[in-house]
Amino acid sequence: MFEIKKSVFLSENVKSFEIVAPRIAKHRKAGQFVILRVHDKGERIPLTIADSNEEQGTITLIVQGIGKTTMELNDLNTGDSILDVVGPLGQASHIENFGTSICIGGGVGTAIAYPTAVALKEAGNYVITINGARNKDLVILEKEMKEFSDEAYITTDDGSCGHNGFVTDILKNLIGENRKIDFVLAIGPIPMMRAVAEVTREHGISTFVSLNPIMIDGTGMCGGCRVIVDGESKFGCVDGPEFDAHKVDFDNLVNRNRTYSKLEKESIERSASCPKVKASNEIDNK
C-alpha cells in the first residue's frame, strides 16, 4: 500500500498527490512515469512523476479525472492509500543544453512537461513555456511554470486567460520573430502534439512529444503500448514515452487509443466516482 501524504485540487478536475514511495523517489528522473492500481479490481494506469522528494521519500502525481480510474483516484484524499504503484518506468527525458527550448503543455500535459522543463532549465537552456488549456479554470501550474521559465505564456481556447487561441499560435509567433529555437517539447492531447509537430517540421526544429498509448505492465511484457515511430514498431513503455515528433505515426496512436472507447464509457457510467452518478446519489439521499 502506498500512502497519500498530501492531495490538493489544482483545478476543478486535476488533482495533485504526494505519495510515499521512497524507492521510486530515489531513482526517478524527469520524463519517467509510474503505473498504479487503485484497488484490487482496478485497472493499471500510467501517470507521469511530476516531482519527487528523495529525503521525504515521496513522489508527486498530477491527475486529470477523465475516466473511471482517474476519477476514483481523484476521490482519494490525504491519508488514503493506493494499492499498487510501480516505477520509475520508461526512459528519462533527454536533457542537454540545446540553447533555447520551448516546452508546451496542453491540459494535464503541462504537469507531464513540468519536470522536464525544469531539468532543461537546470541544464542551462533558455526555457520558454507555453501552457494551454480550454479555459481559465483549467489552467494548472501557472505559478510554478512562471517561477522558473525565462518566458511563460498561457493560452486558452476561450480567451479567459492569456492568449485567446491555441498554443501553436504562440509557437508560430516565436518562430516568426526569427529567434533561434533549438528544441521543442510538446505534451498534451494528441491533436495538439500533432499540430506542434507540423509547425516545427517546416523549420527543422528538433521536437519531442510524450506519447500516451494504452499500457498494462509498463515493462515491455505485453506489447499493448506499441507505437509506430519512423515506420518501426516501438514499445511506448520501455522505448519511450518521449519520441521524435516528426517521426511519430499519430494516426495509428489515435486509432489504437480508441480500442476500448465504448467499454470505457460503460465503465465510467457504472462508477460511483462518475459526476452523473454522484449527482443522482445526492438526489436519492435527499
Binding site: G223, G224, D249, N255
Partner: peptide
C-alpha cells in the same frame, strides 16, 4: 498492419 487496433500479442490478451 500488425499495429492496427485489434491485433494483440498473446501476452497482452492473456494478461488482460
Amino acid at each position: 498492419g500488425e499495429e492496427f487496433a485489434g491485433v494483440y500479442s498473446a501476452n497482452e490478451f492473456l494478461t488482460r
